[in-house]
Amino acid sequence: MDENKVLERAALLYGAIPGYLLGDKSKEEVAHLLVDLIDSLDDIEYSRSGTPLYDVIDGNLPGRRKKSILALERRYDLTEREAHILRYLANERNPTYIANALGIAQATAKAHKYSIFKKLGIHSSEELRHLLEHYEEDDAEAAPSPVAQD
């Protein structure tokens, strides 16, 4: 689903709940809150039906990303905490944000990020983004290169 369309739909939600999300937050903070909300709804729908919420709505890429996250969790034997933190990292959250959201030390969040990156064989958030966009569970036998070589 196009990011602008997601934001338009989220704005409708915001209009239905005046002041609930925005308050004194910046546009970027609101965007992150909306992504968290959508990801939470996605987790609920996937648990309930086995279908990512984005697929239900009509978007394929975010649904594919969700499937990639779940496949990576299984393939690379991530712990439950690492899997949870991988979802934050997939949404471009930094260790400071993750630490605050989960009530853990920033050093702990950084250690989890390092452990996840090591298990996945990557070194940057850009490589994680590429991996999520191109990972196919069917190709699990031949793990993809983190960044395409030109």
Rank of each mutant, 00 (worst) to 15 (best):
T108A: 08
L120T: 11
L53W: 03
Y14H: 09
E28C: 00
S124G: 13
Y135L: 15
D150G: 06
K67A: 04
L86R: 01
R87I: 02
H112M: 10
R129K: 14
L72T: 03
A101F: 06
K66A: 05
L61T: 05
K67T: 01
P144I: 10
V6Y: 01
P146L: 06
A142K: 12
V30N: 13
S47Y: 05
V56G: 02
T108W: 03
L128D: 11
L13A: 10
K27W: 07
L131D: 07
S47I: 05
H32G: 09
L120Q: 11
S26R: 09
K25T: 08
K119M: 14
M1C: 05
S115F: 11
E8V: 06
G103E: 12
I104L: 06
I38T: 13
G15Y: 07
A148N: 02
D150A: 08
R64A: 03
L72S: 01
K119W: 13
M1N: 00
L102G: 11
A90F: 01
V6M: 05
Y76G: 04
E45T: 07
L128Q: 11
I44M: 10
L72Y: 04
A142N: 14
D43W: 00
E8Y: 06
I116Q: 14
N94V: 07
D77P: 01
E136W: 12
K27P: 09
I116D: 11
I116P: 13
Q106M: 13
K118A: 15
L21M: 11
I17A: 01
V56F: 04
E136L: 14
P95K: 04
D150L: 08
G63K: 02
L22K: 13
L13H: 07
S125M: 15
E141D: 14
F117V: 14
N94T: 07
G103I: 12
E73H: 00
D43I: 05
P18I: 10
R9M: 10
R129T: 12
Y97H: 07
P95L: 00
A99V: 03
E73P: 00
K27Y: 11
Y76H: 07
A105K: 15
E126L: 14
I69D: 05
H123N: 15
H134G: 15
I104Y: 04
Y97E: 08
E137H: 10
K5C: 02
N91F: 01
P144L: 09
E133R: 12
A142S: 13
L22Y: 08
R65A: 02
V147F: 12
N91M: 02
L89C: 05
D42L: 09
I98V: 10
E29R: 11
E92G: 02
P144F: 09
H123C: 13
E126M: 11
L89A: 04
E133N: 12
R65C: 00
I38F: 15
L72E: 01
L132D: 04
K66H: 06
L22P: 09
N91L: 03
L37V: 14
L128K: 12
S68H: 01
L70P: 02
K67Q: 02
P62A: 03
A11P: 03
K27N: 11
I122W: 14
Y76L: 09
D150Q: 05
D58H: 05
N100T: 08
L128M: 14
G59V: 02
Y14K: 15
P62F: 01
G23E: 13
K118D: 15
L102D: 15
D39W: 09
Q149P: 00
